[in-house]
Amino acid sequence: MPETTMLEAIRQALYEEMERDPAVVMLGEDIGVYGGAFKVTEGLLARFGRDRVIDTPISETAIVGAACGMSYLGLRPVAEMQFIDFIACCFNQVTNFIAKSHYRWGAPVPMVLRGPSGGGVHGGPFHSANPEMYFVHTPGLKVVYPSTAYDAKGLLKSAIRDNNPVLFFEHKFLYRRIKEQIPEGDYTVPIGKAIVRREGRDLTIVSYAAMVHTSLEAAEQLAKQGIDAEVIDLRTLLPLDRETILASVRKTNKLLVVHEDTRTGGIAGEIAAIVCEDAFEDLDGPIARVTGLDTPVPYAPPLEERFLPNKEKVVVAASELAKY
């Protein structure tokens, strides 16, 4: 099997789903002739035509609104945000129109809204954000954030086949930096299921997206210090897989949450609340977190480095936690 990047895995998922089902259509800015700002959609226009790969004006509200309208007629549109930061431009469509549609009047919105997210590439305050928690706080949406090429392909296929609006975050730092062998042909990864990436006994590190890799590197270093960390990759943030988190905490009795998103209102707070509610007596130490700063993502490399969690910060926090 050939080695595949995350970006290529995402393109494969789009390509295969469009081959499988003519109800799958795409729309977004510069996705057709140009093939997308990161070339995720390269080659799709030539193969599937202008009715199925629609280059739109720069208008995020119109892109998402039109995708919603198309889904009402039974299509399964995949809308692209050129950078996920621009999802703020269509916040109303996503949170008020799409998310509430099924609950309010029983109209499912089987669409995917995907786009490159996250920092570490010197994109500055408007091309580096992790806005997932705005939407994790919005009932009716599903929020998916994969960390591997295998999961990216399988989860995107699940998202396209899901009857609900799925926000699919693609960490752009991982697009071309991770490679792995993935099976050829069709497979899916279920939405709403976390996975244990590394088994351990001493403490649990819960993370997602690029920070899974940071956490795994930290776990290797912690192992040299005699600390055996378990690493959980959430993969889906909404609905959250509470059981996998709780089962791990019941085993290790200690919890560290690592995410790139800003600290206040990040998912670490929600996970801490869940563990306090359902596994308080299993805890042997305080719930710790390593997160992005409560600031915009800054531009200059030394500033962005300061903003982002890294292996060292995770190792320090985990070592402190292990002392309890």
């Binding site: 119109a62 995708a67 309208g69 109303n92 008020n96 109209a107």
Partner: peptide, 27 residues
């Protein structure tokens, strides 16, 4: 019939999408 929401204007892109989908399906 598509349900409105209270925020005005958002139905316009949604119904543009309905129109495009209808054409795509040759309805």
């Amino acid at each position: 019939v598509v349900s409105p929401i209270s925020m005005l204007g958002d139905l316009i892109p949604v119904m543009a999408g309905v129109a495009i989908a209808g054409r795509y399906l040759a309805q």
